[in-house]
Every structure is written in C-alpha cells, then in structure tokens.
C-alpha cells in the first residue's frame, strides 16, 4: 500500500529553506521511482496494451508431422516416433518459473482393415507426456479391439527458467498372440500443445 505523504509543512512567514521543497519531493519520488504497488493504481487500469507480449502466457505447438508414422512393434522403451519422424516435441525457452499445461490430442489406427481382432490376440498402445524425461501424464492402455481410435492426454508440471523439452511418447506391446505377426500401429494425426503459464 504505497501511499506516501509529504514530510514538511512550511507556512507563510517561515524562512525559505530548500529542504521544505526537496524533502517532500524526495519522499514522493522515492515511492514513485520503483516502489509503487497496487494501491497506487486504479482497478482495471492495466490492460493488454500495457503488458508486454509473453508476460503472462505463451503457447507452443510444434512440430506437426505431415504423414502417418508407423510405430515399431513391441517397443521395449518409450519412443517418440519411428526413429526418423518425431511425432510431438516442444522445447520453449522460459525466463521465469512457470506451469506447463500440456495437451496431446491425436488419433491412430491398427491397420486391421475389414477384419476384427481374432480371439486370443491383443496388441496394446500406451501414450505418455514427458517433460525433461519425467513423466507427467499417462494414458490408459489402448488395445486393438478398436481399429481406429483417438485420445486427448492432459498433463501439467512446474518448471524453472530454462528450456524444458516436452515430448509425447509411445510404447507398443502384445498382450497375447495367436501365432500371427504383430500389427503395427500408425499415428495418423496429432498435435502437442504446450501452454506456458508464467509466475
């Protein structure tokens, strides 16, 4: 509550001393020069024209891949694509502690064609969001009982200043087979969106 008040009260017939002027100006200037706060500004006085772009939030979303990406079968580790194309990766440069609001929304198909899953078969896909190697969200396991499928995965985390790397990763595995070769899953469309909410 940076209200300031003058410090001197000169009257007529007082000897003119420069401190009568200077002291009060200095008192007020001391607050004006870097000490003002919410009580000095009216309500709703600040709008977008007064705040630099990127002060409150920034949004990033790329790259967008342009053709379906076939994931390897039975990945033993989490993968971010087929080894050539990265499906979703965002690496913003952030200058202050922030909350990352992350969404990956995408769709895939199991290349089943007209048939439907045979008895005793089950291929599985899991998806997760990762920030600097730390998992922040994990989808339920999706099976190939649905040939075409989609999901939207949400996650958030707190990061400090720097360049956090946000990726979407996938893992495929077969829960049970029937003597048939594993099916590959194609990630057809997807978008990774990262909203940086700044402190």
């Amino acid at each position: 509550m940076s209200f300031r008040y003058k410090t001197t009260f000169p009257s007529d017939d007082d000897i003119a001393d420069p401190s009568d002027w200077v002291d009060s100006n200095a008192e007020l200037a001391g607050e004006f020069n870097g000490g003002m706060d919410r009580d000095n500004l009216p309500e709703s006085a600040v709008d977008g024209t007064h705040i630099s772009d990127g002060t409150v939030a920034e949004v990033f979303s790329d790259p967008l891949f342009t053709a379906s990406v076939n994931l390897p079968t039975k990945t033993t580790e989490w993968v971010d694509g087929d080894g050539t194309t990265v499906i979703g990766r965002v690496a913003p440069t952030i200058d202050v502690d922030s909350v990352l609001d992350i969404v990956w929304s995408g769709t895939w198909n199991w290349n089943i064609g007209g048939g439907y899953p045979l008895a005793g078969e089950s291929e599985l896909l899991a998806i997760r969001l990762v920030v600097d190697g730390v998992e922040v969200a994990r989808s339920p396991v999706h099976s190939d009982s649905r040939d075409y499928d989609s999901t939207t995965l949400y996650g958030n985390t707190v990061v400090g200043p720097g360049s956090p790397v946000v990726t979407v990763e996938f893992r495929t595995y077969r829960a049970s087979g029937n003597g048939r070769a594993e099916r590959t899953v194609s990630i057809d469309y997807g978008e990774l969106i990262v909203e940086v909410l700044k402190r």
Binding site: P10, S11, D12, D13, D14, I15, A16, D17, P18, S19
Partner: peptide, 17 residues
C-alpha cells in the same frame, strides 16, 4: 527571506534554519 513576502526571481536567496 520568508514565504509570503519574498520575491521569486529577485535578489532573494534560499536561507537556512
């Protein structure tokens, strides 16, 4: 000089208490 009678821009000089 004292406030109320001194003349700005004249020969007055800032004083001291």
């Amino acid at each position: 000089p004292v406030y109320g009678t001194m003349t700005w821009g004249g020969a007055a000089k800032w004083g001291d208490h």
